[in-house]
Nucleic acid binder design. Structure first.
Lengths: 213, 213
DNA sequence: TTAAATAATGACCACCCGGTCATTATTGTT
DNA sequence: AACAATAATGACCGGGTGGTCATTATTTAA
């Protein structure tokens, strides 16, 4: 059996290669068209299986999508956990830079998953879309609030700061940077982007030093 | 004739009331379903006209959508121009607060247009979507860069700051605040939201003072 | 009042959708 | 080799799509 309930046991029992080709085709189609506009017919064609088989593995388009986006979220979380653990001994601002760079690396390595992720965040044509978005947002805030609290404890940040407010600012900035980078690499298919290390450092530094005289 | 080329002259020559009902129905349908999933059949039904007539006024669904989103953008720009002019004598941070509040007021007054606006920003199922998004982003940055430069000239901001970087930070924050507010009022149908004046002031103040000790 | 010009209509078109299920092909068991 | 169990198939279903156009209704002009 499977840990999730999105796919039937029949899908898990398939040969790995077949599973991969189905997932690959689905990721492609959902990434390029969102949920509603994605075509099951195109997926089965690209995967090289019959429609009846697909609906034997997944009871509906909805459940197929659930399976796919859970893959995307699992991958994102792996990245975030990794950067959190690997940057334990860095100061707050270095850590923040590393989080941003980790996000950029993720987009470079998994552009199609990133596409699904952003579609999930930003449109409501996906099943459970609203619920997922709110869960993601609050998880992100919680994740970042930890960093802020650690930073305050370590005397790297002003103690008067409201951690939630700072986390909100960080999340806004992170989100926008990744979105800009994502739009750029989706268009140009190149990993070169104006979002380079200098640009990131300048943003983080501006946040660090503040705007006022 | 008309200043834009999205609608035929036939649409402009219609009685105002008829025009309004068509626009109203279209705004509804596009706001609730995005471009591709919006149904022309539903629009003509709600507007109380025949399908043939609609395609006589607008040559395609594409051009109808163009007409609608241009209305949305025009309305947004009116708001932004108003707050820019009305806050000329305020200091930088007060102005930024006012911009945010103006955005919130817009969402409260025109939730359906806001929905179209966010859909435009965040999904690519609309015609010319990518181009529009990039134009909007650079326009926003330009608009905010003006504020920053004025702030530096008036000695309200540190002179070492890179205006574009600050504008980017402002735009990220503004965007996220409005998005959160938008999601809240869409769900609750109430104008009450955790995005109140205190919350906004705290965010602006954090940006102002910076994070470091 | 009548005829010509214009506007409105909705049945119809080809196409695509998600999902079903009787039929066929493959596999496993004796 | 023969049979049963299981897996794969794709024609088919009802329904929806954007768009068209011959027909009908309305307005305008003489």
């Amino acid at each position: 059996m499977n840990s999730t309930s999105t796919s039937t046991n029949k899908f898990e029992q398939l040969a790995d290669l077949k599973q991969k080709s189905i997932i690959d085709a689905s990721v492609n189609e959902f990434a390029n068209n969102g949920f509603k506009n994605a075509s099951v017919n195109k997926i089965v064609e690209e995967a090289g299986i019959s429609k009846g088989s697909l609906f034997n593995y997944f009871k509906s388009k909805n459940l197929l999508f659930d399976h796919i986006y859970q893959i995307a979220l699992r991958e994102v979380k792996t990245y975030l956990a990794k950067v959190r653990d690997e940057s334990k001994n860095d100061d707050f601002f270095t850590r923040f830079s590393k989080i941003i760079n980790s996000g950029i690396a993720f987009i470079n390595k998994h552009p199609r998953l990133a596409k699904i992720y952003f579609r999930l965040l930003n449109s409501d044509d996906s099943p459970h879309g609203k619920v997922i978005v709110q869960k993601l947002h609050s998880e992100a805030i919680r994740y970042l609030t930890q960093f802020v609290e650690t930073g305050i404890e370590r005397n790297e940040l002003r103690s008067e700061l409201n951690p939630t407010t700072v986390a909100f600012l960080m999340e806004s900035t992170l989100n926008r940077i990744l979105q800009v980078h994502y739009l750029e690499i989706i268009d140009t298919k190149s990993e070169l982007s104006k979002i380079d290390n200098n640009w990131i450092d300048e943003i983080v530094d501006t946040l660090k030093m503040g705007l006022s005289k």
